[in-house]
Design a protein around this nucleic acid. Structure first.
Lengths: 320, 320
DNA sequence: TTGAAAGCGTTACCAC
DNA sequence: GTGGTAACGCTTTCAA
């Protein structure tokens, strides 16, 4: 058997006969042969990498999207190359630079906010880009996501319809979590539109904020938290923290105070009472990104930019 | 200028004179020359990759370890290449093969259980291996972790000392989560040693089990769950699910029933009551793995295998 | 359906 | 301090 035939057999080239192919594969696995993708990447000038940045790996939503991407790419001979920025916007550029050194064939970014340097870096490369988890006003290329601000409209409307008027938003103080900031904006605007009183902003600390930050906000306020009708939280973990702290304080949810979360995390379904939340289809985002990626990777000619809105829906629970 | 001199100049080789180096760099940037890392990786057979497999990316513990690794490797010019197996042991071999095709310089595996094929694959490669989150009896190379079985001894002792006798273990039914299986084993053995009645095994479904699975187990048992003195759960999320379901059933925790978790997840600290758990130093595991990796990557000669026990400690809460 | 030759961009090794 | 040669493992191309 010539190397050439082996090469073809391992790539499932149709010109190789069924018999030789199975024989070659068998011998290869017996010999413990491992295909060298580096050499392939070198020869074909295609790395087989798709670069992806995530603000955090420790987040059920992003993890789900990542998994959908990973699964969806599995059959295509492409691999994900991950850079996790831990919510430091400044780190994105560094990560993108490092990812670029591997010659990725496409770049998947989380969110629509990037530093000027990052934008330049990406533009200079001229590789296909997909921004996800957001619908940027001026996308770098393709985008798959939903409007974080718009999603909050449904939440605030729901609260207003059930008689809540004095709202407080619980989220990160800094602007590092851009999606969180968009949600806050959505809450403020909708409340204004509906003629509700000014929404209070309760600072849960720097991003990423989670359960203990939500609990901390309520614990610090103590009984004063009852001055609000509803706590609109930036995420489910924060909402759960608030709920738990309320229960310790003897504040009844939802009788004394409504609480809402965001993201349809497992904790909201299991918590007692179940937390009202917003489903953002993390898995669907991954699937749609995969769909775009497949098209990108198959046909090298530039695709016309796509803007895919996966939407979001209110999931009423027992806390509102 | 010969290609050779250019190559040396761009790599800051000292044998190139200062004058030629600066001239070469200048011309290179003028021409828009881009250094090809893929070709370098191919030629030198050094990829700058450290391969890592995780059973799940959506797990706060593993995410923390991953982050510690990622941060610790940042300065070294090496990148992590991730394969997430989603608790399918059979998938590990496939992932390792895929990771190997990129010529990683070291391999970090989660857990000490691997298929024979995986073991052969790894042995044939002869690359440095670190197993983490476990202390295998026969390590493939280095190991950084703790004894899952031993950690449970502390839990069961604690329960016995506080008068609990009839225990039930809540965990996955299949053996896909090897660390979970080791924990179960630790519970069974310690109970036997202490002369407690036979521990009941409550099946929460196939791995990975989480909040809703814990809640499901208790909901299905209903009031019958009160026949036990304590639910020993394979992880904190499962424990939280059990706790929440008990609260819905009106079963008092810890008065009627004790509940313990594992892994020091945020939910256990914030839950009401706080859940008794075990701290396993996820971040420390990452740091120790980094320490070993740095030594491995610096000196190519084979290191003598290290076995690092990061230990674990009981964190008493309000559920026991 | 299979094989032979050439070459992808870099660097190890040796010569000058 | 600089340059020539060969080779890494694969695939494109052309020939049989």
């Amino acid at each position: 058997m010539s190397p050439m035939t082996v090469s073809r057999a391992l790539r499932d080239d149709k010109t190789v006969s069924e018999a030789t192919r199975t024989r070659i594969r068998q011998v290869a696995s017996q010999l413990g042969y491992v295909y060298d993708t580096t050499a392939q990447a070198f020869r074909t000038q295609k790395s087989g990498f798709v670069a992806i940045t995530l603000p955090s790996i420790n987040n059920a939503n992003f993890a789900q999207t990542f998994r959908a991407l990973s699964d969806g790419l599995a059959g295509t001979g492409n691999q994900l190359l991950l850079g996790s920025t831990n919510y430091q916007v400044g780190k994105e550029e560094e990560h993108v630079r490092q990812l670029f050194s591997r010659n990725p064939e496409a770049l998947v970014l989380t969110g629509g906010y990037h530093t000027d340097n990052t934008r330049q870096l990406v533009a200079a490369r001229g590789l296909p880009v997909i921004e996800m988890w957001d619908l940027p006003a001026a996308p770098l290329g393709h985008a798959v996501g939903f409007s974080n601000a718009h999603a909050m409209t449904a939440v605030v409307r729901h609260l207003a319809e059930t008689g809540r008027r004095k709202l407080a938003f619980v989220g990160a103080s800094d602007g590092a979590d851009m999606r969180g900031a968009a949600r806050r904006q959505g809450v403020l605007e909708t409340a204004r539109t509906l003629g509700l009183p000014e929404v209070a902003l309760l600072d849960a600390g720097p991003a990423p904020v989670s359960m203990r930050h939500g609990a901390g906000v309520v614990a610090q306020l103590g009984a004063d938290v009852a001055q609000y009708d509803a706590l609109v939280c930036v995420s489910d973990p924060v909402a759960f923290g608030c709920l738990s702290a309320c229960q310790r304080l003897g504040i009844r949810v939802p009788e004394d105070l409504a609480i809402t979360g965001f993201g349809c995390f497992e904790v909201s379904e299991v918590a007692n009472p179940r937390i009202t939340t917003v489903n953002v289809n993390a898995h669907k985002i991954g699937e749609q990104v995969v769909a775009v990626l497949r098209d990108i990777l198959e046909q090298p000619e530039e695709l016309e930019p796509r803007l895919i809105d996966v939407g979001s829906e209110l999931v009423p629970g027992e806390t509102s």
